[in-house]
Simulated assay, not measured.
Amino acid sequence: MYFEQNHNFEPGDVVYVLYRNPHAQDVAQVQEAAVVENPDQPGELSLFMYDTYYPLDEEIAVFPTEVEAMRAYNYHFGEDGNLYG
């Protein structure tokens, strides 16, 4: 998806991600997450949301602002949230 590679995320940053519900793949939303140090990989950063650590990599669409995340969400999923157009 999208990863803001030119942005230098630091522990404590609040970011916004496009998150698909793992139990209902037709449900997506913009979710706030925290950038934290990965407790299992010292020196690496992770995203923390829903009491879970996620890798901070190209597999998750990460945006520095909610406005940018909503713009991407609306572009990919439509303003009404319909994943299929």
Rank of each mutant, 00 (worst) to 15 (best):
P42Y: 08
F48H: 12
Q5I: 09
F77L: 12
F48P: 00
M49L: 15
A72G: 02
D13K: 05
L18Q: 04
Y2D: 14
A34D: 09
P11A: 06
P55H: 04
A24R: 13
R20Q: 15
I60S: 05
M70C: 08
M1E: 14
H23K: 12
Y54V: 02
T52P: 03
E4M: 12
F9Q: 02
V30C: 02
E58Y: 07
P11E: 08
E37R: 06
P64W: 07
E44Q: 14
V15N: 06
Y2A: 12
P39G: 04
L18G: 04
G81E: 07
G85C: 06
Y73D: 01
V35S: 04
Q41H: 11
I60N: 07
A28V: 02
Q41N: 14
Q29F: 00
M1S: 15
V17N: 05
A34N: 12
Y16L: 03
Y54A: 05
E10N: 12
A72R: 14
F3E: 11
P22T: 07
M70Q: 15
V17K: 02
N82D: 15
Q41E: 13
N74L: 00
M70K: 12
H76C: 14
D51T: 11
E66R: 11
G85N: 11
G81C: 07
A33F: 01
Q5R: 15
P42S: 10
D51M: 10
Y75V: 08
E44M: 10
E32M: 10
L56F: 05
E10M: 15
L83Y: 11
G43E: 06
E68L: 14
Y54L: 10
F77Y: 14
A28K: 02
V30I: 09
G81M: 05
A28E: 02
M49I: 07
A34S: 09
N8R: 15
D26S: 05
P55Y: 06
A72M: 10
Y16G: 01
A33V: 00
P39A: 08
E68W: 01
E79R: 09
L56M: 11
D13A: 04
Q31T: 07
E4F: 09
Y16F: 15
V14K: 15
Y50G: 15
G81W: 08
E66Q: 08
F63C: 01
G78I: 03
Y75I: 11
G43K: 07
M1D: 13
Y16C: 03
L56V: 05
N21K: 03
